Simulated assay, not measured.
Amino acid sequence: MEFAKERAELVARLKVHGISEKVLNSMLNVPRHLFVPAVHISSAYVDTPLNIGYGQTISAPHMVAIMCNLLDLQEGHKVLEIGAGSGYNAAVMAEVIGNTGTVYSTERIPELVKSSKSNLKAAGYRNVKVNLSDGSIGLPEHAPYDRICVTASAPSIPEPLVQQLRSGGRMVIPVGEMFQSLYLVMKKSDGTVVSKEWGGVVFVPLIGRHGFHFESKPYRHH
């Protein structure tokens, strides 16, 4: 029960960020200690990012809360997440959208696909589907999405993700290399796209075709 007390105290502290009750309640229900490596379990409810191996991190709870808040998630939404990591961010979003919604998550590191699936199963989330794939190109087979959440910083806003966003949809994405900013991207009903800068952030880089460090394959385009 100690974890429940720590979690409640953490969520109470997140209120200073202007987070909606819906997101706060969802974070109250997600057992973050099930999504952190055993070596960091004592820090599970400290508001800080934690190393999950393979050069990746689980985001600080306040950043998860802010991104979910900006997305304005609703029950029944179909959400695309780029960067499953440990599965925690997907779990929070799954909690908000409920059993009638689905989170499709991409992850490029096979070991994290396996561990995130295991973490999500242990925490009881059945409405998250984790895929081993290049997140920078999205997941076109399930598009369009009501919301897209990108948990790695891109050199620019990837066009495939904009295309896979439903009219009236929202995307949050960090952009930049040395200096990163979080952007809220909104696609209006007429298809025009508006982006607003939220503020400075620090995320791991988005690796892939529309991200950083992509090595082109030796095939010919027709």
Rank of each mutant, 00 (worst) to 15 (best):
P140F: 13
M93I: 09
V150T: 08
Y183S: 14
L165S: 12
G101P: 04
L182P: 03
P174F: 11
E215W: 12
S136W: 01
K114Q: 15
S181L: 08
Y88Q: 00
I82F: 07
V92Q: 01
C68E: 09
P61W: 08
L161Y: 05
T192H: 09
V11Q: 00
E6W: 00
R126V: 09
S167I: 04
V201Y: 01
P110F: 05
P110G: 04
V193P: 08
Y54D: 12
R220H: 10
A123T: 02
I58D: 01
R7K: 07
S118Y: 10
M27K: 05
G200A: 15
I109H: 15
L161M: 07
F35I: 14
G101T: 02
T100I: 04
I109C: 11
H210N: 14
V92R: 00
I207D: 02
K117W: 02
K121S: 11
V46Y: 11
D146P: 03
M186G: 06
N131V: 15
K22N: 11
A12C: 03
K121G: 05
S181V: 07
H221K: 15
D146R: 04
E95H: 00
L71A: 03
N89R: 01
S133Y: 02
G76W: 08
L73Y: 03
V11P: 00
F212P: 06
W198Q: 09
C149V: 15
L206I: 10
H142Y: 15
R108M: 15
I66H: 01
Y104T: 08
G135L: 12
S133V: 04
Y219L: 12
L132N: 05
P155S: 14
Q180S: 10
N69D: 08
K196M: 09
N25D: 06
H62P: 05
R126S: 12
E107I: 04
I52F: 09
V130A: 12
H213M: 11
I82L: 09
V39C: 03
I66W: 03
V175T: 12
A4F: 14
L112T: 02
T100P: 01
Q163D: 07
L28R: 02
V172K: 02
G101M: 05
A8K: 04
V201G: 03
L70Y: 14
A90T: 07
N29Q: 14
G101K: 01
K117D: 02
M63W: 04
M27C: 15
E75M: 14
P110W: 11
L28V: 14
P49I: 11
I66Q: 01
P174M: 15
P61A: 07
V202T: 15
S116F: 05
F179E: 14
D47M: 12
T151I: 12
A65H: 00
K196S: 10
N51Q: 13
S20L: 06
V23T: 06
F35E: 02
F35L: 05
G211Y: 04
M171S: 14
P160E: 08
L132T: 04
A90R: 03
L70Q: 11
C149H: 15
V193H: 09
N69I: 01
A91L: 12
L112S: 02
I148A: 05
I82Q: 02
C68I: 09
M178T: 06
F212S: 10
G87F: 00
L182N: 10
S189Y: 12
E111G: 10
L14N: 03
A4V: 14
T151S: 14
E95W: 00
P160L: 13
R209N: 06
R220V: 14
V64R: 00
